[in-house]
């Protein structure tokens, strides 16, 4: 059997220089640059300095607000808060108060721990099976869960309580709060056409960062109350600094979206 080939083309493409073809094909309306002015640069530096200074100077107040919000959320969800404890974070920063929550331990009910670990692994397996793009991340979390389960089973002494977790959590978060203004000022103030919007977004991200940290910490403590430290490394990984990165990206993508739309609308293209 010989296969022959016939080529049919629409009439408008039969001529090589048809008007339907363009010299250059641009898939988008690319511009040469965005203006980064001295005013924007100064406002970014000033905003970052003021926010960093505020966190450093008033960290005790921020920790107090964070703790109150966390306790309120825990009480709303019915998790018992047995008290509050003062913890050390870093030299140069004030002490912080974290809620004390009773935490389930492996020794008290090993079967429950095993069932929870298996359920967690099955849930993660189902997620990676359904969403191919999430496979790498979810398999990493599954490995983390498996390692945690083994460590807890072999070395029950490695388990820790809510206060220790609060200390680990706040150590990470306070660093994020201190660094966030620098990066968000660079990401928002420099690329926004109106500097005031950039400054507002930078401040907004900072406020959201503190609020969201309290929410995530309350969630982690609630999980600890029911399942001990089994899921804590996963939560610490997925809801810790990674979650900080995600909200920053969400804010950033929205800012760029708004900026790009506005810029191109202004150019009436």
């Amino acid at each position: 059997m010989t296969v022959s080939l016939k080529v049919r083309m629409p009439a408008f493409l039969a001529t090589p220089h048809s008007h339907m073809r363009r010299e250059f094909i641009y898939p988008h309306r690319s511009v040469r640059s965005f203006r980064v002015t001295v005013a924007k640069l100064l406002s970014a530096v000033f905003t970052a300095a003021v926010l960093c200074g505020s966190i450093a100077a008033y960290n005790a107040e921020f920790f107090t607000w964070h703790d109150r919000l966390c306790v309120t959320l825990l009480e709303w969800t019915g998790v018992p808060v047995t008290g509050e404890q003062t913890i050390e974070l870093f030299e140069g920063l004030s002490t912080a108060v974290v809620p004390a929550v009773p935490v389930a331990r492996f020794e008290s009910n090993p079967l429950r721990f095993v069932l929870l670990a298996v359920a967690g692994l099955l849930a993660l397996w189902a997620i990676q099976h359904r969403i191919a793009l999430s496979r790498g991340f979810v398999l990493f979390l599954a490995a983390l869960l498996l390692i945690t389960a083994c460590v807890v089973a072999i070395h029950p002494s490695s388990q820790f309580g809510a206060v220790e977790f609060g200390q680990i959590w706040l150590r990470g978060e306070v660093l994020v709060w201190l660094l966030l203004p620098v990066f968000s000022a660079a990401m928002f103030t420099l690329v926004q056409p109106i500097w005031l919007i950039g400054v507002t977004l930078t401040v907004l991200v900072q406020v959201f960062g503190i609020f969201w940290s309290a929410v995530r910490m309350a969630f982690c403590l609630a999980v600890m109350h029911y399942s001990g430290i089994l899921f804590v490394p996963i939560l610490w990984f997925a809801l810790g600094v990674l979650a900080d990165m995600i909200y920053l990206m969400v804010f950033y993508s929205m800012a760029v979206h708004w900026n790009a739309s506005r810029y191109w609308r202004r150019k009436a293209l």
Partner: peptide, 24 residues
């Protein structure tokens, strides 16, 4: 921003999955 791609940029947070998948 330079391309004026205002809609697709909203997917940036989702790109985290691509990042993890590529890493693996």
């Amino acid at each position: 921003l330079l391309d004026g791609d205002a809609r697709r940029v909203l997917l940036i947070p989702v790109n985290l999955f691509n990042f993890f998948a590529s890493t693996a």
